[in-house]
């Protein structure tokens, strides 16, 4: 049976574990707040570029562009976005499971790993990755999204890939992160609601394009793809922190429970010891009489 000292040591260790969990939760909470601000700040741009692209593709009619070309999806590329670190519940494994299922459904799929967890996962399974990006940090720059999309865009335009998807964790709310698979190439020109309503009212206004619809589209399409990836990373980041917050909150509560249970057992052992000593004394006294 463990001695009193063993129990005390155990409780002390649990207490320091609890402190660490609490601290990690506090850090995750602060980082999540920041990440949410970043998501919100990026939203106007995403919405605007979507609107402009929608109107542009509507007004430009059937313009040919390599990023719009629809092919039979034989060779598919997946951009998988996870966190760099663990200790955030099922956050990473949920995405990786989704990614693995998708990749197995499309034999020979190319993979782009974003986040250390994704890279390690594929490396461990000896699945070749096309490119890997780790060490995302907290301050996600748009240029980072550009780096990630560079290879998939080039290879799609060259006809090496027939479709490109992004697998990421959609930030539904603080408690729910949804592993999501979104097609980014070929680009489906967004048909915006506002445009539809206006169409009912009358014909679309004739746009002037400087220098030409094709030229503007040529610049705008890659940027749109980058925006989608940028947004996915920001959402994934916010989701990672909220998942970690939830996980650490649970861990803090669990250590609390364990401390309670251990204390209870310790007291029982202590009580037993006292009772035994008392019995010894009483027995000893009785023997003297």
């Amino acid at each position: 049976m463990p001695s009193l000292r063993d129990f005390r040591r155990r409780i002390k260790s649990l207490q320091s574990t609890q402190k660490i969990c609490k601290a990690m939760k506090a850090v995750a909470t602060a980082k999540m707040a920041k990440a949410q601000v970043a998501v919100t700040a990026a939203r106007p741009y995403a919405r605007q570029i979507q609107e402009v692209l929608g109107r542009l593709s509507q007004a430009a009619g059937d313009v040919k562009h390599p990023l719009l070309a629809v092919r039979e999806p034989k060779k598919v590329c997946y951009i998988v976005i996870t966190a760099d670190r663990g200790l955030c519940g099922g956050f990473n494994s949920n995405i990786l499971r989704t990614a693995l299922r998708e990749a197995e459904a499309h034999p020979g799929a190319a993979l782009v790993a974003v986040g250390r967890k994704a890279r390690n996962f594929f490396r461990f399974r000896k699945m070749p990755v096309e490119a890997e990006f780790t060490g995302l940090g907290e301050d996600i720059k748009f240029a980072f999204a550009r780096q990630i999309t560079k290879i998939p865009i080039e290879k799609y335009a060259a006809g090496e890939y027939d479709a490109v998807y992004v697998v990421y964790s959609k930030f539904v709310n603080i408690l729910v992160q949804q592993p999501t698979v979104v097609k980014i190439l070929p680009v489906d020109p967004p048909t915006e609601q506002a445009g539809q309503e206006e169409k009912k009212k009358g014909p679309e206004p004739l746009y002037i394009f400087e220098p030409s619809a094709e030229a503007v589209l040529y610049d705008l399409l890659p940027k749109y793809v980058e925006t989608v990836i940028f947004h996915a990373i920001l959402e994934s980041k916010a989701g990672e922190h909220s998942a970690r917050m939830t996980a650490m909150d649970g861990a803090t509560k669990n250590t609390e429970d364990m401390i309670g249970r251990t204390t209870l057992r310790m007291n029982r052992v202590r009580q037993e010891g006292i009772t035994k000593e008392l019995l010894d004394i009483v027995g000893g006294a009785a023997a003297l009489e």
Binding site: V52, A59, L206, Y207, F209, E210, P211, A213
Partner: peptide, 19 residues
Amino acid sequence: RSVAGDLGILPDHAPLITT
């Protein structure tokens, strides 16, 4: 300054998209 030259946009401008 667009790629095609300088542009001044006043209210009631015709619909335009440019780089």
